[in-house]
Nucleic acid binder design. Structure first.
Length: 489
RNA sequence: GCCCCCAUCGUCUAGAGGCCGAGGACACCGGCCUUUCAAGCCGGUAACAGGGAGUCGAUUUCCCGUGGGGGCACCA
């Protein structure tokens, strides 16, 4: 009989949620949901010195944003709590003490100064760094003496000198490590907090975690963990190490590569469904065709067998494309609703607030298929909201035209449009297209000039739609302003 | 330095001995559509790093090398 699937995402509140961490969370979540298992969030707050205030909240809100809900953990509780390691200190201490009693661990009194010098010396001699085990076989008398000096020891694991540990990683297959290459790692720090290694093993066991899905960077510490499971008499979970997410230079994705926090993508106007889909495809694929997956489709199709072993570069171009595709697939209402906060934030301060929902509703259809991120919508649509257009007058003179012909064209436009009753796209086209012919201009010339007059830019949404949304009065005002600019040239 | 791992277009990847003179997607380049830009449609450029072994036959198996990554903290 197989044990029920229980997986966990175990972030450390030492910084904002890196997309790599989020990808790990996503895969854990997908695996749990696919196998009707439980997804646990456990907070690994054992590094007091690196703790970042507010990071926890950001991590959790990031998960919520993406739709990754958890069955046990912060805010929801569960039968295996507490879910903060800082509240489980006695459990780790007990485990460490037991290991000492059993002869699997020992107190180490070496100062961090000595350890540092030792590592430097090892580096100088081009030897692999590692603890030299000076305290491994201290006599009782020596220990008493050290204690008398007031030194608070750390607890180290007694890694066997001989033998090897092999395990079958669900993604990497069989992996073997010689014990001789593993030093005596610290289990309990001198401040009484456990290291990741100890806390992880103890908690994964106590929380009955069945599968550990974590990044590849943990692969080489897995044998240490296995050794600890063995010493503690715990049955280890199954391990699956996920490929790394890389920067453009193929190194582990980090700050210097630009945006790495999921919150930055949120702020930059990427949709959660884009991030989920994109991250899922970094290291996992279904077949040789499918690119766009909803969360539900991912749940239905996810499997570890289809996770690759190769690190994947985070490709911003593809992310942008995908976000554009998702934006286009949104209903107009949904698109508008999601864009609203970005408009509130991004439109020039001079634009009167509150923004008119009705007016925005008219603008949004013109921009939806052109936006790649929500954050660029304000920039793309600013001319709809501002009264004064600030642009280079020269832009009004398009290809094969000069100042005179441009003035003429805009004057003609003004004359023909002034008496218009209906200012809809059909009426506008019915007037302006013939006008171009009449003026012996290509439509591109007339419309190009007019586009600049009305929007202040050469690239904009379709002209007639734009003018229709702006309305007759404002459109003609802008034509007038353009004429002034041209004449002052 | 030591240990572990990885290796198909620029990027994400499909490919589990003949279906591959290698497929899809992004990006890029053409073309169509078109009032600009997008979107859409059509087409194109572009990869199995190298060397052995084994096989009737290797992108696909094994070995060697090469390149890359990860780890080696009282950080996770």
């Amino acid at each position: 009989m197989t044990k029920p699937v229980r997986v966990r995402f175990a972030p450390s509140p030492t910084g904002y949620p890196h997309v790599g961490n989020i990808r790990t969370a996503l895969f854990n979540w997908l695996f749990a949901r696919h196998s009707s298992g439980r997804f646990v969030v456990r907070i690994e707050d054992t590094d007091v010195t690196r703790k970042v205030e507010g990071a926890l909240e950001v991590i959790l809100s990031g998960l919520k944003w993406l739709g990754l809900d958890w069955d046990e953990g912060p805010g929801v509780g569960g039968d295996y709590g507490p879910y903060f390691q800082s509240q489980r200190l006695s459990l780790y201490r007990e485990a460490a003490e037991r290991l000492i009693r059993q002869g699997n661990a020992y107190c180490c009194y070496c100062s961090s100064q000595r350890l540092k010098e030792m590592r430097e010396e090892q580096a100088r001699r081009k030897q692999p760094p590692g603890y030299d085990r000076r305290c491994r076989d201290l006599s009782e008398a020596e220990r008493v003496q050290k204690e008398a000096k007031g030194i608070t020891p750390v607890v180290r694991f007694k890694t066997p000198f001989e033998g090897r540990t092999r395990f079958n990683d669900l993604i990497w297959g069989e992996v073997v490590f010689e014990h001789g290459t593993i030093d005596d790692l610290v289990l309990l720090k001198s401040d009484g907090y456990p290291t990741y290694h100890l806390a992880n093993v103890v908690d994964d066991h106590l929380m009955e975690i069945s599968h550990v899905l974590r990044a590849e960077e943990w692969l080489s510490s897995t044998p240490r963990h296995l050794l600890m499971y063995q010493a503690l008499g715990f049955e280890p979970p199954q391990f699956a190490h996920l490929p790394m997410i890389l920067g453009a230079d193929r190194a582990k994705l980090s700050k210097r590569h630009g945006s790495v926090s999921i919150t930055e993508y949120r702020e930059q106007g990427y949709l959660p469904e884009t991030m989920v889909n994109f991250l899922a495809l970094l290291g996992w694929s279904l077949d040789d065709k499918a690119e766009i997956f909803s969360l539900a489709e991912l749940v239905a199709n996810f499997s570890l067998e289809r996770v690759s072993r190769t690190g994947a570069i985070f490709n911003r171009d593809k992310l942008n494309w995908m976000n554009g595709a998702y934006i286009r697939s949104l209903s107009l209402d949904d698109f508008t609703r999601r864009t609203l906060p970005f408009l509130e934030n991004g439109l020039p301060a001079g634009v009167r607030r509150p923004l008119s929902i009705d007016y925005i509703g008219q603008v949004m259809p013109l921009i939806q298929e052109r936006a790649r991120t929500l954050a660029e919508v304000p920039e793309l649509t600013a001319f709809f909201f501002t009264d004064e257009l600030d642009y280079e007058p020269g832009l009004l003179i398009v290809k094969k035209m000069d100042r005179e012909s441009s003035v003429q064209a805009l004057e003609a436009v003004r004359q023909r449009l002034s008496p218009l009753q209906a200012f809809d796209t059909v009426s506008l086209e019915a007037v302006l297209r013939p006008l171009a012919a009449e003026l012996e201009l290509k439509t591109g010339q007339l419309f190009g000039t007019l586009r600049v007059a009305v929007t202040g830019r050469t690239v904009a949404p379709p002209l007639f739609e734009t003018m229709s949304v702006l309305g007759k009065e404002r459109s003609l005002e802008r034509v007038g302003a353009a004429l002034d600019k041209l004449r002052s040239l």
